[in-house]
Nucleic acid binder design. Structure first.
Lengths: 205, 205
DNA sequence: AAAAAAATCATGTAAAAAGGGGAGTGCAAC
DNA sequence: GTTGCACTCCCCTTTTTACATGATTTTTTT
C-alpha cells in the first residue's frame, strides 16, 4: 500500500521540489500540502496521512509546537522534521516532541524515499549528518532552564539590569541575582556576554 | 529570446522545485545548477547565463562572497539572491555586492517569473516583503564597525574580560575599554548583554 | 503525603563594566 | 596640507555584576 504523504512547509519552492521528486515514485501517495500550522490542523480533521513532512521554521506556530500537537491528537501519524540546517537545538526539540525522523533540505531523492519508508514502518530515520549532530550532543547539550529563568534570561538580553528586572517582576534584586547565577552555572558561562551568545546559538532567546 | 538561467543552491529540493516550476515556462532556458560556489565558478568558465539564482547560505563560500566575485568577473551576469528569511543584514549585504534582486523561497511561480524577467532586463527586483525590510533599515541599520572593534566584539562574546582581551591583543585595558564604549554607542546599547544580542541578530558574531 | 524542584530572599566582598572626560599618533583621502 | 578616521592610552566615579554561603516558601512530581 502506498504511503499517504502530507507536507507542511511555507516555502512553495520546497513543496514543489518534493512533489516533483516523488511524482514518479509508485509507493507514495501525495495527499496535499499546507503552508502553516492552522491549515495543517484543518486538513487533519478531514483526512489522516501516514507521514507528514514538516518544516520546523514557519510563520506563526513553529513545526516544533505543531509536531507535539499532532502527535498528541493523532498518534498514528508519523512526522519527519525538515529544515535547512542541522542544529542540535532544533533536531533535539523535534525528536523530543515525537518526530520519527529528521531530514535536511539538501537531502537526495534516495534519502527522501528511504526516510519515508523507514518512518512509515514505524521506525526512526536520521540521516548520517543529523545522527552525528545528535551523537555529539552530550557536550553541547541544551541546558534545562525553568520558566522563570528563561523569562529573566530574556530580560537580561534586552539590556535590563538586575534592579530593573526586579522592579519589572515585582521581586527582590536578590532573587534576580540568584536566577542570574543559576543561569551562568547551567550554561557554564563566566559572564553574561558568553551566556547571551551561547543562549542565542541554542535558539533560547 | 529565452532567459538563460543558472542556479546555485545546496538544497536539492529547492533546485528541483524551481526546475519543476519553470519547466513549462517558454521564456526560460535551464542551463543547469551547482551545489556550491566552486562548481558555480567552474561552470561560468564554460558558459555564461543571463541570470543566476543564488542561495545566500551555502557550505564553503557564502552566496554573499560569491555574488561579489561573479559580478566583478562577469558584469553581464545578473544575480538574484535567494534565501528562506528576509533579514535586512543578508539582503543588504547581497545588494551591496551587486545583486539585482532578492527572492524568498516562499515566492510564488508568478513572483519568480517576474523577478527573472525584470532582472534580465537590467532592472532591480525586490518583492514587497523584501522591499519593506530594506525600507525600514534606517532604524535597524547595521552599525559600521571597524576591524578592531569587530575583533574585540567577538572576544567579548567569548566571555573574555577587558583585562583578558588586553593581554590577548597586547594592548592596554584602557584601549579595550574605549573600543567597548564605542561598540555600545554604535549599537545604541546600554550594556553588553543587549549588545551581544543585537550583534548576533545582525549576524555580526 | 513525602520528596524533589523551583522560586524566593539576605548579607557581604571583590571584580568588572558603564559613563564621563581628555589626548596623542599614524595613515589615507580630499 | 589639513581633515577625518582608526587606534591607542589615561584618569576618575558610580553602578552593576560575579562569587560565596545560607535559608525559607511555594510548586510540582512521584
Amino acid at each position: 500500500m502506498a504511503i499517504k504523504l502530507f507536507i507542511v512547509d511555507d516555502h512553495y519552492m520546497v513543496i514543489e521540489g518534493i512533489h516533483s521528486l516523488l511524482a514518479e515514485e509508485p509507493g507514495v501517495e501525495w495527499l496535499g500540502h499546507a503552508g502553516n500550522a492552522d491549515s495543517c490542523l484543518a486538513f487533519l480533521q478531514q483526512q489522516l496521512p501516514d507521514v507528514i513532512l514538516m518544516d520546523i521554521s514557519m510563520p506563526g506556530m513553529s513545526g516544533i509546537e505543531l509536531c507535539k500537537l499532532v502527535r498528541e491528537k493523532y498518534p498514528s501519524v508519523y512526522i519527519i522534521g525538515l529544515s535547512t540546517f542541522n542544529q542540535q537545538s532544533y533536531i533535539q526539540k523535534m525528536m523530543d516532541n515525537g518526530a520519527s525522523g529528521y531530514l535536511l533540505k539538501n537531502a537526495t531523492k534516495d534519502e527522501l524515499v528511504k526516510a519515508l519508508q523507514t518512518v512509515a514502518a514505524g521506525k526512526l530515520y536520521l540521516s548520517d549528518d543529523v545522527a552525528n549532530v545528535l551523537r555529539n550532543s552530550d557536550e553541547n547539550a541544551i541546558p534545562v532552564i525553568t520558566r522563570r529563568e528563561k523569562e529573566i534570561l530574556e530580560l537580561i538580553a534586552d539590556g535590563m539590569t538586575n534592579g530593573e528586572i526586579a522592579a519589572h517582576l515585582f521581586i527582590s534584586v536578590s532573587t534576580v541575582d540568584t536566577h542570574r547565577k543559576n543561569l551562568l552555572a547551567k550554561f557554564d558561562s563566566k559572564n553574561i556576554a558568553s551566556l547571551i551568545k551561547v543562549a542565542m546559538q541554542m535558539q533560547l532567546i
